[in-house]
Each structure stands twice: as C-alpha cells, then as structure tokens.
Amino acid sequence: MSEEIKPNEIVDFLKPRVGARFKMWLGICAHCGLCANTCHYYTANEKDPKMIPSYKIRFLKEILKKKGNVDKDYLQKVYETVYYECNMCRRCTLYCPFGIDIALMISLLRALLFSQGMAPEGLVKAIENYKESGNQMAVSDEDWVETVKWCEEEMAEELVGLEIPIDKKGAKILYTVNAREPMFYPQDMMEVAKIFYVAGEDYTYCSKPGWDDTNLSMFCGDLKTSKMIVENTFKRAKELEVQQVAITE
C-alpha cells in the first residue's frame, strides 16, 4: 500500500478510545520487569527482552506522544509485535503489581491498525464471511440445517428417539457452535447431541445466522462486525424465547 498515513486520522481514532485506564497505565508502569517471565513468548524465545509485555505497548505511548506522526514502516513494526508476539491471554496482567492490562492495549493497537487497513488476511477473509453469511466459514443457512439434520439421522441410529431440535420455541438453551464444526468436525455436533439427549436437556439450534459463536473480527479490532455477530445471536435468542445461550467448547 502506498497511501499516505494521516496523523490526524490516527489521533482522531485514538482520542475517544484511549480511556482513563490506558492513560494511567502508560503513566505508572514502573518498568519493573515483573511481567517479563509471565509471558510464554518471552520464555519460549530464550528470554528475549523484546518479548517483555511492557515493552510491547511502548508503541501506544510513542504514537500518542508523536501525535500520530508515524510512517508505514513503523506501523508494520507495530503489526508484527501485536500479532506475532501477543495472544492477548492476559497472563501478564495477573502478575503485574498494578494489574496493567497489556492485552487491552494490544487490542487497541490492533484496532488502530485495522482502521489503517492493516489486518491479517486470514481474519479479513473471515470478516467478509461474517458479513455475508453470519458465520466465519461462509456456510449457507441451508447447508447448516442440512448438516444438523444429517447429524440427527446418524445419531438416531445409535440412540433410540434422539432428536436434534432446530428453532424450537421456548427451549431452555440455545446452543451455538463454532462454524468449523459443521465444516470439519461434525463428529463434535453428534457427540454433543448425545450428551444433551442423555442428560435430557431442553435445547435447540437456530437455523438463521447467529448459530456461530466465534467472533474473529474481535481479534483485529473490527468492533462493528463484532457487534453485529453478537447481536445476531441475541436476536435469535429473543425470537426463540430461550433462557440462556450456550456456547460450544
């Protein structure tokens, strides 16, 4: 990409999003290094000092200080750090004396990169799928229902009277899956059907978008899509008047 980076765009993006906690954390981090050996990237990379969680968020401080005056190469460096060196697992937060939430700041940096059109292809593709079909693998609603039906047939041979309810109004639980399950691991759906049946659970699947409980757009800070996905599921839950939404393992 050759477009110029506009500092004011970066500032405008960050301003409403850098909350009081972020400012405080950037201000009081004692650079004590207690978080260093809490991060698996640090330990796995022979204690490479560059992997210290506190070091990874220096970008946020620098970008704010430079008022967004950074170039593409710089953002590329940020990209490599926030994607390749952090899983946003929050382990470091549990060990920091101030409870500084590094992962939260990393996700803000990811969102900033996304607003500048930088995001990993894998995630961008998933986002397109979400927007199109409501799930990450672009499974069509028909295929989804068919898969559920097929699982039901398979399982009915093993257990007498097994049914997999779809769109059952008033069920207790709306069960949602990872969209990889109908694609690659239908076995998972069969197993769960068995468990629910034996346990006598009153549950249901839904046939329209909302049945995928993954939210990959969150990982690159695309909050708009992220919100849409969550709302989809809650819309279904409301329509079906269920008490609870359950998510797969």
Binding site: T43, Y83, N87, P120, L123, C220
Partner: peptide, 21 residues
C-alpha cells in the same frame, strides 16, 4: 489464542515457537 490460529500461515512459525512453554 488472540486470533493466532485463524490468521493462518503467516503466524504459524511464531505460534509454534511460543507454544514451547
């Protein structure tokens, strides 16, 4: 975690390394 799996190829090297722990 954190999207490392679905990112796919470009991330693989890093996540295998980090997974050593």
């Amino acid at each position: 975690g954190g999207g490392a799996m679905p990112i796919g190829g470009e991330m693989k090297k890093h996540r295998l390394k980090g997974g050593k722990v």
